[in-house]
Design a binder for these strands. Structure first.
Length: 595
RNA sequence: GUCCCCGUAGCUCAGCUGGAUAGAGCAGCGGUUUUCUAAACCGCUGGUCGCGUGUUCGAGUCACGCCGGGGACGCCA
């Protein structure tokens, strides 16, 4: 028996074929296959209801006819039954569960099996995108963590992913920074912590150049020199970018992030003229109060007739480019240079209007010029708040630096790990180095997972105690489940890469069956998370899988004498291990051997 | 004023293109270890899905209108 990776997909095809034999296909029958409540089955098809209603037929009779037409292989794989007004329920037979598990036997094979979904597609993911010469703070966390998970999900589905860090590396602030740098730079401080020193210099520069002062004119002159290619200022600006990227990479290393490109706003300086030209010649852009703007009259928000018109500002009245023009140039570059089939931009919800206007404009512009149009997605997320519901701040009301946040995560995890370690029998205790390593994975993983496990569109309440809890939907709980699986192999002297599963019989006990069913649904979880660009679907699945494993672990002893039982339980343990690890890796977490 | 997001158990949240009796975790109460990590497992308690009207065989989910919280709205990104 050969079973495909994505069983819901397979059922969809089988049902379409069956309906086709009845002539229902031409009349718009849609199977509507989804994962079912375990009480009803593994999958359910609801399509007979809508179809029967349209055709004025009895839905149960329609469902029965379709079931009768199913091919022999599908009928041999699933127990099919009708329920309620015309639901078709499918429950995998134990032998089919075993067959699926036997085939999907490593992280590499899971990856290979999933890669069919988006093979050959190019996806550009724009995330993190901090401003150079500034520290990354809590506000940068979600974009980085969610963006990286989306990259990994898309790649797992077979896409070629281009990770692009769209740095804020251009703008008027550099005039003030250069002004401050030239007067007050402290070489020792730059050596020690470059970004902190640049922030200090910017503040000095900013405070020394009040509105209307001659100092402000000097700062503006520095900016003009930079824009005109003055070697000294360009060298300074490049230095700012370099030290910033080096500092960012220290954060990215801890979060498992590595960009393919850092094409910041400055990269598009020489590419905006084409945007002005093409938007003007296609008649999309027009002059308004000296600025070049685009209206979208069909849209109440962006129409020129709106009470408070909100045009898309392509070029400012002073002739300078704004973020609208660089974002337009960026969309074009990604389409032409990276051959993007899809572009995902991960920023917070406050920029929704901007990206809606951007996408509307790109759509019309590309259509007018006959350019290929990639899928455009603005992946938004809510704010990170403290437990009082307000923006997360330090005790004295300051901004929390991302570095400090990650440090604290590790410190808190270390305290828990060492406390647990002291309770352990002496022979099983970890060394201090091991405790620190575990604390790193658990602490950072907890921060990542807390962010990913929640639907990204709502605000997210930051709570150390909740994310570091050992029970509930948390990173420690999942990492613990992984460690418990590995522990079985270690105690039994077995190599988890080569599990002795020959002779495994189909799952039998309720806990074995529940676990096997959950494992098979990995494909659905990955698909839902990727299609909707929402990693929390995968998190929820992994939590349920870990729960099914824990129940199995408590109920059914693995290392038993009966060779068939032992082999099938080792098979379940091993497949749980590879699915949990694959899933956690997709989320950007590092998994552990022991904890 | 226009538009966007959110409102589900005491708390934090799931609920996939409308589908079966609305689910978890925490907190609370009770149980489980001579057995592979008890950082675990099992059970119980807990709901007018913000309010109302409508569409539908069927609404937490869709439409419209309110209420409450957050946000955006011409040269910042």
């Amino acid at each position: 028996m050969h079973l495909p990776f994505h069983l819901a997909n397979h059922l969809d095809s089988a049902l379409r074929a069956a309906a086709g034999r009845l002539g229902f296909g031409d009349r718009g029958f849609e199977p509507e296959v989804r994962v079912a409540d375990p009480a009803h089955g593994d999958f359910q098809a609801n399509g007979a209801l809508a179809f029967a209603k349209r055709e004025k037929q009895n839905p149960r009779a329609v469902a029965q006819q379709i079931v009768d037409q199913l091919d022999a292989e599908t009928a041999a794989t699933f127990d099919c039954s009708l329920a309620g007004p015309g639901f078709i329920n499918f429950r995998l037979k134990p032998a089919a569960l075993l067959a699926w598990l036997a085939q999907h036997d490593s992280e590499a094979h899971l990856r290979e099996a999933a890669a069919g979904a988006r093979r050959g597609q190019h996806w550009v993911v724009d995330y993190s995108s901090p401003n150079t010469a500034k520290q990354m703070h809590v506000g940068h966390l979600r974009s980085a963590v969610i963006g990286e998970a989306l990259c990994r999900l898309l790649a797992f589905n077979g896409a070629h992913v281009i990770r692009d860090n769209h740095l804020g590396d251009w703008g008027t602030q550099f005039g003030k920074l250069i002004y401050g740098y030239k007067r007050w730079a402290d070489p020792a401080a730059l050596e020690r912590d470059a970004i902190e020193e640049l922030e200090r210099l910017y503040k000095l520069g900013h405070n020394a150049t009040p509105e209307g002062s001659p100092e402000l004119d000097e700062a503006r002159a520095e900016l003009v020199k930079l824009q005109n290619g003055d070697p000294e200022n360009v060298a300074l600006w490049k230095k700012f970018s370099e030290v910033s990227l080096a500092a960012f990479q220290q954060i990215y290393d801890r979060l498992g992030i590595r960009f393919d490109h850092n094409l910041g706003e400055s990269f598009y300086n020489d590419k905006v003229d084409r945007v002005y030209r093409e938007l003007t010649e296609t008649g999309l852009a027009e002059d308004s109060a000296g600025a070049l703007v685009v209206f979208h009259d069909e849209h109440p928000r962006f129409s020129r007739h709106a009470e408070r018109p909100n045009p898309f500002m392509v070029r400012k009245a002073d002739g300078a480019s704004g973020y609208a023009s660089t974002d337009l140039a960026t969309a074009l570059y990604r389409t032409e240079h990276f051959q993007a089939d899809g572009i995902v931009i991960v920023t917070d919800f406050r920029q929704s209007d901007h990206f809606e206007q951007l996408f509307l404009t790109v759509g019309k512009w590309f259509a007018a010029k006959n350019y290929r149009r990639p899928e455009l997605h603005h992946v938004t997320f809510g704010a990170v708040t403290g437990e009082d519901g307000k923006a997360l701040k330090t005790r004295d009301g300051g901004t929390i630096k991302l570095k400090a946040l990650l440090d604290e995560a590790e410190v808190r995890a270390y305290a828990i790990v060492t406390a647990k370690n002291a309770e352990r029998p002496e022979a099983e205790r970890f060394t201090d180095a091991e405790c620190r390593d575990i604390a790193r994975a658990v602490g950072i993983g907890a921060v990542q997972y807390a962010d990913l496990s929640q639907n990204r569109s709502s605000n997210y309440v930051f709570s150390w105690d909740k994310m570091l809890a050992l029970d509930g939907n948390t990173a420690p709980y999942l990492l613990y489940a992984v460690a418990r699986v590995r522990s079985i192999f270690r105690k039994a002297g077995l190599d988890p890469a080569q599990p002795p599963t020959a002779g495994a019989t189909p799952p039998e006990t309720p806990q074995e069956l529940a676990l096997a069913r959950k494992l098979v649904q990995f494909a659905d979880a990955v698909r839902a998370a990727t299609q909707q660009l929402r990693p929390h679907f995968l998190c929820l699945y992994l939590f349920e899988l870990a729960g099914a494993y824990s129940a199995f672990y408590a109920a059914d002893k693995v290392i038993v004498d009966d060779p068939a039982v032992r082999a099938r339980r080792l098979l379940l343990c091993h497949r749980t291990l590879i699915v949990l690890e694959s899933g956690l890796h997709l989320l950007g977490l590092r998994t552990l051997e022991r904890m």
